[in-house]
Each structure stands twice: as structure tokens, then as C-alpha cells.
Design a protein around this nucleic acid. Structure first.
Length: 593
RNA sequence: GGGGGUGUAGCUCAAUUUGGUUAGAGCACCGGCCUGUCACGCCGGUGGUUGCGGGUUCGAGUCCCGUCGCUCCCGCCA
């Protein structure tokens, strides 16, 4: 029985048509004589009626055997339902199919969990991921993901971009995230690395004269997971020749606005707002600010420079800062709420959360008021622009801790107070990132973005004297407080690239060993170039309104980087290890060796 | 590596507060009844290593120690 229609498409205008439907038994209601079957396929649900008056006895017997999720084919005639029996909950609710023949294509054992129950423990759903996809929002997300991928391809194709695949078996580089390694059988003791990004390949494609490249590329990073981080994830990787930063930003934001328009029917104005890294940190305490709401940070350091409050004074005397956010109308927040917020900031290293209340008469009360002079209180009111009824929450610490703590707290309060309208999509560019930062642990400078990022030309003179002041031609695109992409204009001058490696403390020998192919290529006619990589999973997650990128990935891994469905990773035969010249020192294999 | 949440029947939960009879309910499953249901209904039944290991106790799902899974966050993620 070949299917003629999907389960979501029949309407009363189809009454009288003979149809064949295929699908899964969504639900069976056996009334003794009459049997109703909700038949489901990926497009919808249609009610079948097995009526002894219209259906052969043998087929009725078959219908009595059916259980949830059996796979069947049914032939019958579409019939308009009598008025009182129309089901307005169902797109096909005005009709039903009177069954004349029924084939069981496959039986199904009882389901291990209720497929419609969204509260089922995640490990059980992951073990039977195909069942979760069958009925949950995941299938809808995967189809959305497909549409976004197609929009990306069509958009970039129209602009002359060429989609090119780059190797998955790649080479380990010393900078960046921990690599996934693949042992080589034919080169004992040597390893491939899975790419953290196709970074070097795409630069080499620019040297190759491709000019406009893109790839929907799988990337691998062996770091600990989060709701928005998987060990393998997908980037929309883009690189262009003969461009400057403005060109890359323009192509990127036009593509993102196009996607928002097509997927969400939302018109996002371009160009997106630009914020410098410094401004983002100062105003939002984050390099990926959620700009859907205010609650910006106010700097109280100047006003409290001479404060007699020892907590603030000590921080300011040792190079720290004191900043505040002032949520409106929360002056009556309970002690319990304040404690909960103090707990939130404690996770970022803040030792406390001081609070002030602006009373209805404009006076300043609250837990920290007694430590402050009248002048200081007046200055704080001026800087924060807090009004009667507002609350002022203050953190004093190193800038890093203050920004992290208040940056987090403003998001928590905005979410709890409903300050975020769910249908807003606020894109923002963060630009002028520092090129380098000092790594205390290794006692050297490391690249904030990556070692191929070009400094701003006017800052190059400071590369040796004050490296942390050099700004990069690097940019991140942020959507609703989630970093969805980043890129840079690359170094195309071999001398500058060598100087960067030197600045990063990578010796000439090591840079030749690790990046020799790139340095050589830069000497052989490399055009100026730059690009961007968009986090495809995160983008689709936000478009889908999902809370984790697991919800937009067909077969995701757990926070321990395991696949509960297939059981990967798993031990392998001693024979396989031997071929690969590998011996395990710990773990499940070690004992047998 | 660190902190939080969580784990009782195939699934979702109750019993844990204050240790005390045979660990209950709904759904699923099995058997029976039912011709207009759409979460169909009604009657009956099966089903438990309370994640795992150890300890305290006359007695542990409940208290203690360890450990494992899932999850959220910090570190980490050029």
C-alpha cells in the first residue's frame, strides 16, 4: 500500500477520496465495536475509524492488536465528520478516514517512556534519542536548522562565495583549546588533530585565490561542556580577500538580518549597533552584553575614592573598582532576595553585595548606608540616577570580578523581573578587542582571539612597550547576550606574523614547526583577508527559542562528553590499539595490558 | 579541578520532615467489558537490587561515609 497523502493534509474538501496513509499509531481508542486510531506521520495526525460495518472482520481483528507506535499502512475513504464530532484541536479534525484495509508494517515493543512527556529524565531521553525526536520539539528544531542552513548557502552563493570542505584529519597546534587526537597507524607515535576550526585552511584558501569561501564546518574542542557547548559543534565559517573589517561586518549582519526575516518574520535593522570592548565591559560588565534591557553598570569608584568605608577603600587603594546596578522599584526587596543575589555574585568571586535603598522621601537607607557620608550618598544617587523606590546593588573588587559579578546579576534580575521581552532579537557587534592579554599562569602574553589576528595598524608601535593596549581588528557578534560569532582581519604580512609569534613567546623553531606552512604561504602572494565564524548551533538555538544547543543537535553528547545512545566513547580491542602503537596507562583497558 | 540540583516500578511522582507493619498512585503492560471516541470509559491483575558500595542501628528508601549517572554554573573553551 503506497501512501497517497500525509497525515496532516486532508480536509473536508477531500471527502469521498480514497487514500492510503502510512505512519505510527499515535493512540488507539477501542470502544469495543468501533475502534479509533490516531495515525501520525511527520506532517500531522489523522483519525482512522475501524467500523465493523465498513471494514472486513480480518482487518478489524488487526486493528484490535495495534499498540502505540506500531507502524501501519491504512487504506480507506475520507469522510466528513458529523458536526458534533469535529475535533477543533486537530488540523485534520473535520474529517476521518474510514478504514477498509490495514497492514502492520512493523510492530513496536512498549515504549521505554511516555513520548509526549517533556519531564522525562534527560539521560533516558538521550538513550532513546530517536524516540524523543519522533514526537518532541526536537524534530521541529532539526527542520528549522535545515532551513537556516539552506538560507546561509543560498545567501552566500548569491554573493559569490564558494563552499569548500577542509580536512577533518588535521594538525595539532599549541594555542587554543585542547585537541581531540587521532592516532596514525602508518606513522607510529604521530597524531592527527580534529580541527577546532578550519582557521588555517581557510586562510590558505585565500592565498589560493578563492577570494570568497564558506563552509558549514564541524569543529571539535576537548573542553568541559555547558548548555551552549558541545565537544563537536558547527560553525558557518566565512573568509574573504581584499576586505576590511567593515566589509566582513556588513556581509555578516546582512545575512543574519536575512535569516531573522525569513525564519522569524522579524525585521532587524542594519547596521547592527557597535560597541567597543571597553564600552561593553564598562556598561554591561560583559563582552557579550544582552542589550535587550538597561540595568547598566554605574562606576562609583570616583565618588568613593576617599570613603571611610574600609571595604570600598581597600579595594580602591589596590587598583580595584566599585560599581553598581540600580534596579527600579526594588527597594523593598526582601533580605532573602538580597541573600540570593549575593549568592549569585559569590560564584564569580565577589566577596559581598552591598545594597542601598532609595526611600520615598529620597533619603538613602539600606545595609550599606551607615558606612557612607551624606556627600557620598548624594554622589551615588547622581551617578546611578536612582529614583525613590529603587535599589542600588554594589560590588567592590578587581575590575574582572566586579564586571563578571554585576554582568551576571543584571541578567538574573532582568530575567526574574520580566524586563526581557521574549520576542526581541537584539544583535550587537563588539569591536576593538584587545589583541593580547597577560596569562598569569604561563607568565606570558597570549592572543585574545587567535595568533593570526591583525592588530590595528595605529596600535602596532605599542606591541613591544605596552602590549595589552594594542587593539585587534577583531569582532564578535552577540545576540541576546549569547556570543554567536567572531572573527578578525588576519595578518597577511609574513614579517608581522613572525613578530606575533615572537610576542607570544613562540620560538622561531617552534613557529616554523607548527605554522611553517602558513608562514611560507604568506610569503608567496597572500592577499589581505579576513573573515568570521558563526556558531551555527547557538544561532539555531536562539531562533528556535531553545535553552540548550542539545535541542538543535540530532544526537548530542552529555556534559561528560558521552553518547548515551551508542555508548561512545568506549574501549577498543587490544589488537586495534596495537596497530595504532598505543598503550593505555589508566582506564578500562590498562588492566589487560 | 570546584560548587549547586537530582536519582524510589518501564515512565512521572508519593512515602524521607520525626528511622518502625507488607514502599503506594497515575500512565504503560497483561486479562475482561464497551459502536462516536479524540488524554475514551469501566472491572481485575502483573510489576521494586529505593542508582551502586559500605557503615550506624533491634530495625534504613529515610541517618553517616564513599562512589556513579544526568544536569546548571565557576575554572577551562586561541
Amino acid at each position: 500500500m503506497k501512501r497517497t497523502h500525509h497525515c496532516g493534509e486532508l480536509r473536508s474538501s477531500d471527502a469521498g477520496t480514497r487514500v492510503v496513509l502510512n505512519g505510527w499509531v499515535h493512540r488507539r481508542r477501542d470502544l469495543g465495536g468501533l475502534i479509533f486510531i490516531d495515525l501520525r506521520d511527520r506532517e500531522g495526525i489523522t483519525q482512522l475509524v475501524v467500523d465493523p460495518a465498513a471494514t472486513a472482520a480480518e482487518q478489524v481483528n488487526t486493528a484490535q492488536l495495534l499498540h502505540d507506535e506500531w507502524v501501519i499502512a491504512a487504506r480507506g475513504t475520507v469522510r466528513q465528520r458529523p458536526g458534533t464530532m469535529v475535533n477543533p484541536q486537530l488540523a485534520t479534525g473535520e474529517i476521518e478516514v474510514v478504514v477498509e484495509a490495514l497492514d502492520v508494517l512493523n510492530r513496536a515493543a512498549p515504549m521505554p517512556f511516555h513520548l509526549d512527556d517533556t519531564t522525562v529524565a534527560e539521560d533516558i531521553r538521550l538513550r532513546y534519542r530517536y524516540l524523543e525526536i519522533r514526537r518532541s520539539a526536537i524534530a521541529r528544531n532539526l527542520r528549522l536548522r535545515h532551513r537556516v542552513a539552506k538560507l546561509v548557502r543560498d545567501f552566500l552563493d548569491a554573493l559569490g562565495f564558494v563552499e569548500i570542505e577542509t580536512p577533518i584529519l588535521s594538525k595539532s597546534t599549541p594555542e587554543g583549546a585542547r585537541d581531540y587526537l587521532v592516532p596514525s597507524r602508518v606513522h607510529p607515535g604521530a597524531f592527527y588533530a580534529l580541527p577546532q576550526a578550519p582557521q588555517q585552511y581557510k586562510q590558505l584558501l585565500m592565498v589560493a585565490g578563492i577570494e570568497r569561501y564558506f563552509q558549514i564546518a564541524r569543529c571539535f574542542r576537548d573542553e568541559d561542556l555547558r548548555a551552549d557547548r558541545q565537544p563537536e559543534f558547527t560553525q558557518v565559517d566565512i573568509e574573504m580577500s581584499f576586505v576590511d573589517q567593515a566589509d566582513v561586518l556588513s556581509v555578516s549582519e546582512r545575512m543574519l538580518a536575512h535569516i531573522a526575516r525569513e525564519i522569524l518574520d522579524v525585521e532587524v535593522p542594519t547596521p547592527f549597533p557597535r560597541l567597543s570592548y571597553t564600552e561593553a565591559m564598562n556598561r554591561y560588565g560583559s563582552d557579550k552584553p544582552d542589550v535587550r534591557f538597561g540595568l547598566e553598570l554605574a562606576d562609583l569608584s570616583g565618588a568613593l575614592q576617599k570613603s571611610s568605608f574600609r571595604v570600598f577603600r581597600r579595594v580602591l587603594d589596590t587598583g580595584g573598582c566599585v560599581k553598581a546596578i540600580s534596579p527600579q522599584g526594588l527597594s523593598t526587596a526582601s533580605r532573602r532576595t538580597l541573600d540570593a543575589w549575593a549568592g549569585e555574585v559569590a560564584g564569580f568571586g565577589a566577596k559581598g553585595l552591598a545594597s542601598l535603598r532609595v526611600e520615598t522621601d529620597g533619603s538613602v537607607g539600606g545595609q550599606a548606608a551607615k558606612f557612607l557620608s551624606e556627600d557620598e550618598k548624594r554622589d551615588i544617587l547622581g551617578i546611578t540616577a536612582a529614583a525613590p523606590g529603587d535599589l542600588i546593588l554594589i560590588v567592590a573588587d578587581t575590575p574582572k570580578v566586579v564586571h563578571a559579578a554585576l554582568g551576571h546579576l543584571r541578567r538574573v534580575i532582568a530575567r526574574d523581573q520580566g524586563l526581557i521581552s521574549p520576542d526581541r532579537f537584539a544583535f550587537v557587534w563588539v569591536v576593538d578587542f584587545p589583541l593580547l592579554e597577560f596569562d598569569d599562569e604561563n607568565n606570558r602574553y597570549v592572543a585574545v582571539h587567535h595568533p593570526f589576528t591583525s592588530p590595528r595598524i595605529e596600535d602596532v608601535p605599542f606591541l613591544d612597550s605596552t602590549p595589552e593596549k594594542v587593539r585587534a581588528q577583531a569582532y564578535d557578534v552577540v545576540l541576546n547576550g549569547v556570543e554567536i560569532g567572531g572573527g578578525s582581519i588576519r595578518i597577511h604580512d609574513p614579517g608581522m606574523q613572525a613578530r606575533m609569534f615572537e610576542r607570544l613567546g613562540i620560538s622561531a623553531e617552534e613557529s616554523e614547526d607548527r605554522f611553517g606552512h602558513l608562514l611560507t604561504a604568506l610569503k608567496l602572494g597572500a592577499p589581505p583577508h579576513g573573515g568570521i565564524a558563526l556558531g551555527f548551533d547557538r544561532l539555531v538555538m536562539l531562533l528556535a527559542g531553545a535553552e540548550s544547543i542539545r535541542d538543535v543537535i540530532a544526537f548530542p553528547k552529555t556534559t561528560r562528553a558521552a553518547c548515551l545512545m551508542t555508548g561512545s566513547p568506549a574501549p577498543v580491542d587490544a589488537h586495534q590499539l596495537e596497530e595504532l602503537h598505543i598503550r593505555c596507562t589508566t582506564g578500562v583497558d590498562a588492566d589487560s595490558q
